[in-house]
Design a protein around this nucleic acid. Structure first.
Length: 790
DNA sequence: GCAAGCCCAGATAGT
DNA sequence: CTGGGCTTGC
């Protein structure tokens, strides 16, 4: 078992007593250490598997860890291995009654939570202009992950706004409790609450877990740290594994402080490091090391490898997202044709889910099989959520959110007014809506009128029947019954025939999921099924079988590895993301994200960078990511050429990126790839020159053609002739300085539309950013272009 | 009670 | 361009 471990790994495995922090670089074999350590505890130390607790970042990671341990030690599956959330649920299902929750409390996902926040905002008369559900929700989540309860939030509030949010927080929690529901964060919050309020319970669990292991420790938050401490308090054997260079979830409340101050939180802790990388080639590692070296806030380490240099990274210059998709597809086809890689070896990573669409289209058009992780998730489809809401309601009749979702879906003539009367009556009686219906039907009739009451009571009766059924039947049977009694499929076709077929397929997939669950689990109980659904992460649904390319966000790729990695959209405002440009901490997190992306790769890395990207329908200029400039020049070769983003093609002047003399842009050394001016790319010394010579041929059309055809279409509709059109086009370009009569001087950031519809986004000094119609703006050109990036 | 149509805001990342 | 929320008219 211990064979083949390097000395550091070996020590990390066998040095089991007391707290330990393992700083494990990307690809340094930490998963192996974790699994071997668990196996070692069981086999060599005689620890009972049930006394081991391991936290992973995703269910998929948990499953893999369990399988790997099981392979080393058959019968080890009694160990508690799971995400923080899953472990929280596991404890809460046994103990929730102490907190005043029934065992079968509902778990609300983001959309359910949003519904609750919305109703809270409405009830407290919040001004929708000042408080969006989104913001409030994220504020609440931040509080929770920082372990701040509503009353503390109220006390800490420094402004009227914060006070209001604390009030919303309080009502939100009250509402969840009324619904006997917990949101995602609560799964940990309530577990901590339980352990803190009931010392005997804490003692019981802390005694039980002789060894506690935590993976991806750099992405844990203060609340999770409290949970770790509480559960390891008795034996104090905490083994935390993490890499500060891969901390990418600070927006979820995670803090590297947990790692940096480990020795304070766990006195007597030892710290070990794994710096030898077994995953990537020399070139890839060199690139990754160099990039992450630009971060200041880090513990600092340097990965090394004895692997061969391999192939240099390739930088693909493309015109726009379609060109990018095409380039990605062609490279994959090439790799597959060479026989060196399969499609399933390839992953395409991107910063935002919105980028997946163009990539997806490109792959589909080329007939290249792919799977997408994340984005519009299966369990977020309306039809799937409707049916799940029925099931949740069956399990937990107090769940108002689910009730309101389905009481009139399919339509049964229970409209807003009747529903409101019903809700009011129930609230007045201090009962949940369904209890009201079941226990006091006459009052429902009084409140809603006879006709409406009849329909409502019919619905309530249906849920009661389903609930009875769920006592003895498994999840799949109950789901079938829901579909049957609600005639859900019929309604799909009635509601929107055009989408009905696709939705029906989704419904059947849900049914399949339920069947699969029933087949796998002991009892196939409905509420266990709902729980497994609620806790699923996107990556958990990743297909291991089937030869297809995988598409996902960089965040989702954490902890995974692939022979071939594509990093799409290596552009300013995307990577680093626009929202992270102005704070150093955020910028460094973006860099870590890029680092994570690079270090997923075993053998090949392709980076793509477009000159133009479409957003909200309009065209926007894209600049090469500053991170590209941080790559050492001799580990990258370029493909295609960096074509100027000629947003105004007809005007004939120099395009934004055609420079008469190589003028250096800020922050970009001349030797780096990003600084090279347009022109045929050259293979570099270490690369394969022949490839570098290839042009970026094969685009469906250049930016120019695309924009002009679009312009012509518009012009035809508006009685412009082409001459006039060109005149209009000629007037403005991105980067141009202009003066506005009242707004002052500014720089054009984006040009959208053509002719009389030309819209300009201009950043003014004082007035900020404005989006205006060029024809009314009466702009005056000012000499000299602004130096981009803005 | 309900459907059609209009308007506006919007999309960083996810257990 | 898209989706959700609101208004309007039947």
């Amino acid at each position: 078992m211990l064979e083949g471990l390097n000395p550091q790994q070996h020590r990390a495995v066998v040095d089991t007593e007391g707290p330990m922090l393992l700083i494990a670089g990307a690809g340094s074999g930490k998963t192996r250490v974790l699994t071997t350590r668990i196996a070692h505890l069981i086999v060599d130390k005689g620890v009972h598997p049930g006394n081991i607790l391991a936290f992973t970042f995703t269910n998929k990671a948990a499953r893999e860890m369990r399988e790997r341990v099981e392979r080393l030690v058959p019968g080890a599956s009694d160990a508690w291995i799971g995400t923080f959330h899953a472990t929280g649920v596991r404890i809460l299902r046994r103990e929730a009654e102490r907190l005043g929750y029934p065992r079968q409390f509902s778990i609300y996902d983001a959309e359910d939570s949003r519904a609750v926040v919305k109703s809270v905002l409405k009830a407290l008369n919040a001004d929708p202009k000042q408080f969006s559900p989104r913001e409030v929700l994220s504020a609440i989540s931040r509080y929770k992950n920082a372990s701040v309860d509503p009353s503390e939030a109220r006390e800490q509030a420094l402004s009227w706004r914060e006070e209001r949010i604390a009030d919303f927080y309080q009502d939100y929690q009250r509402s969840l409790r009324d619904n006997q529901a917990m949101d995602f964060d609560d799964l940990i919050v309530k577990t901590v609450e339980l352990l803190e309020s009931f010392p005997e319970v804490q003692e019981r669990y802390a005694r039980r877990f002789q060894y506690v292991l935590v993976d991806e420790f750099q992405d844990t938050n203060p609340l999770q740290l409290i949970l770790i401490k509480a559960l390891s308090a008795h034996w104090r054997n905490v083994f935390a594994v993490g890499d500060d260079d891969q901390a990418i979830y600070s927006w979820r409340g995670a803090t590297v402080e947990n790692m940096l101050n480990f020795e304070d939180y766990f006195p007597g802790a030892r710290v070990l490091r794994l710096e030898r990388n077994y995953r990537s080639t020399g070139f890839i590692l060199q690139a990754a090391n160099e990039v992450i070296g630009h971060n200041r806030r880090r513990r600092g380490k340097k990965l090394w490898t004895e692997a061969e240099q391999g192939e240099p990274l390739e930088l693909l210059w493309v015109d726009d997202e379609e060109g990018e998709a095409l380039a990605v597809r062609e490279r994959i086809e090439e790799l597959v044709a060479d026989g060196e890689f399969r499609r399933r070896d390839c992953v395409v990573l991107y910063r935002t889910n919105a980028q997946s669409r163009a990539l997806e289209d490109g792959l589909r058009r080329g007939g290249l099989p792919y799977q997408i992780i994340g984005g519009t998730r299966f369990y977020e489809r309306r039809e799937v959520r409707d049916l799940l809401a029925y099931l949740k309601l069956v399990v937990n009749p107090a769940d108002q959110v689910s009730l309101e979702r389905v009481i009139n879906v399919p339509r049964r003539g229970i409209g807003k007014t009747s529903l409101q009367r019903l809700l009011d009556a129930a609230a007045a009686a201090g009962l949940s809506t369904l209890e009201m219906c079941w226990q006091r039907p006459t009052e429902v009739e009084r409140a809603c009128g006879r006709a409406a009451a009849r329909r409502i009571l019919l619905f309530a009766g249906m849920i009661a029947e389903l609930a009875a059924l769920s006592e003895k039947e498994n999840a799949a049977r109950v789901l079938e019954k829901v579909m049957e009694t609600s005639a859900y499929l019929d309604w799909l076709y009635k509601d929107d025939p055009s989408s009905a077929q696709e939705r029906e397929e989704n419904v059947h997939e849900l049914l399949n999921a339920a069947e699969a669950f029933v087949a796998e689990s002991d009892e196939g109980r409905l509420f266990d099924f709902l729980e497994s659904v609620a806790l699923l992460a996107d990556v958990d649904r990743m297909e291991a079988d089937g030869d297809m390319v995988t598409l996902m966000t960089m965040h989702n790729a954490k902890g995974l590895e692939f022979p071939v990695v594509f990093v799409a959209g290596c552009e300013e405002n995307l990577l680093p993301h626009a929202n992270s440009l102005h704070e150093d901490d955020k910028l460094e997190e973006e860099r870590r994200l890029f680092y994570v992306a690079l270090t997923r790769a075993q053998r090949r890395v392709f980076l793509s960078c477009a000159s133009m990207r479409r957003r909200f329908g309009g065209a926007e200029l894209a600049l090469p990511s500053r991170f590209l400039a941080e790559l050492p020049a001799d580990v990258v070769v370029e493909r295609g050429e960096r074509r100027p983003a000629v947003v105004q093609p007809a005007w004939g002047g120099r395009g934004l990126w055609e420079e008469e003399s190589p003028r250096r842009r800020p922050g970009r050394p001349a030797s780096s790839p990003g600084a090279r001016s347009a022109g045929p790319a050259r293979g570099k010394r270490s690369g394969s020159p022949a490839r570098g010579e290839e042009s970026g041929a094969g685009h469906l059309y250049g930016v120019e053609t695309f924009l002009r055809s679009k312009a012509r279409k518009k012009a035809e509709g508006h009685g412009f002739d082409e001459h006039e059109l060109n005149q209009e086009e000629a007037r403005f370009h991105v980067g141009q300085r202009v003066r506005h009569a009242t707004l002052g001087e500014g720089v054009i950031e984006a040009v959208e539309g053509f002719g009389e519809l030309t819209r300009l986004t201009i950043r003014f000094g004082e007035a900020g950013r404005k989006r205006i119609l060029a024809r009314y703006a009466r702009l005056e050109a000012v000499e000299g272009d602004s130096d981009l990036p803005f």
